[in-house]
């Protein structure tokens, strides 16, 4: 049970003079339950990749397998795919439209053809999961704050019970606390339900603290695939691709260069704190 991309390429406007190769020979295996971060500068192919995963685009060549089945086979059920691989677009709150929050969340499961009772149960459950207070259930989604609207939009996808949950910059435009709340929520959902999460983000600090694995895209190619520590070690390569490591990584590396005995693989504030305190402690002992 997994998501496999086998030699996948994709070009826009094939057969015209505007043809543009957006993805070149991508090979990825994502096992169940992994929290994957997808990074890359604007135009690196991230959005094309996630649209391929949920069947919105079809590869120009290569195959995508979900649970052992080629999702682009003529007899494959696309509707089921879209309920199993849920995609939350950027600024998903722009897609809210119903007269109240609860109805909006019902829209997805209703379209799956489920009976009313099941639809209501799922909507209720999804809104509970995103921790939206009951007071808001029958309010217009347009009267909510930015962070609340985003929760409703995320609940709308959760109500389809996806096994793979893809989010395109879910924290863009949210204040720091709001971002943290959304990411913690997603992390907990991944841990509790065992679903796979693919997070597209421009925020390296977020990626460093939440994901198990990072995929780095550049000019349509998969350039790196590894643990956050492995990827953020390669600061120079990242910088050539218009990306960077978290700020603390540069701090520990610089300290190390100055002869400070710190572990320079730290990528979060707490890791950096730990290793700097250790180094200071040893320095005092030696003096």
């Amino acid at each position: 049970m997994s998501l496999i991309l086998d030699h996948v390429s994709y070009s826009y406007d094939v057969g015209t003079s505007y043809k543009q190769e957006a993805l070149k020979d991508i090979n990825i295996v994502i096992p169940d339950g992994q929290f994957v971060g997808l990074i890359g500068h604007t135009g690196s192919g991230k959005s094309t990749l996630i649209q391929l995963l949920n069947g919105l685009l079809k590869p120009t060549s290569g195959n995508i397998y979900y649970n052992g089945q080629d999702i682009n086979d003529s007899d494959y059920d696309r509707k089921t795919l879209r309920s199993k691989v849920g995609l939350v677009f950027q600024y998903p709150e722009h897609q809210l439209f119903e007269e109240n929050v609860f109805k909006d969340v019902c829209f997805g499961p209703k379209n799956l053809g489920l009976d009313e009772k099941e639809v209501n149960l799922r909507a209720y459950d999804a809104l509970e999961k995103v921790k939206l207070s009951h007071d808001y259930f029958y309010q217009s989604p347009f009267d909510l704050s930015g962070g609340q609207k985003r929760r409703v939009a995320i609940a709308g996808i959760l109500a389809m019970k996806p096994e793979v949950f893809i989010l395109d910059e879910p924290t863009a435009g949210l204040d720091p606390k709001g971002s943290e709340e959304i990411l913690t929520l997603i992390k907990n959902l991944q841990k509790d339900t065992g679903m796979t999460v693919i997070l597209v983000s421009h925020n390296m600090e977020d990626v460093a603290s939440y994901v198990d694995r990072i995929l780095v895209m550049n000019k349509g190619e998969l350039k790196m695939d590894g643990s956050p520590k492995d990827v953020f070690k390669k600061t120079e390569e990242l910088s050539n691709m218009g990306l960077r490591a978290p700020e603390v990584t540069y701090i520990v590396r610089e300290l190390r260069k100055k002869g400070f005995p710190v572990d320079d693989s730290a990528i979060t504030v707490s890791e950096a704190k730990e290793t700097i305190l250790n180094a200071l402690y040893h320095k005092i002992l030696n003096e």
Binding site: K177, G178, V248, V269, K273, L277
Partner: peptide
Amino acid sequence: LKSLRLNVPQATMLAYELKKAGV
């Protein structure tokens, strides 16, 4: 700042945490 749902730059946060630990 945290109580106002904000944050600080990462270098500031690290310095703050180190200071709290006695540095």
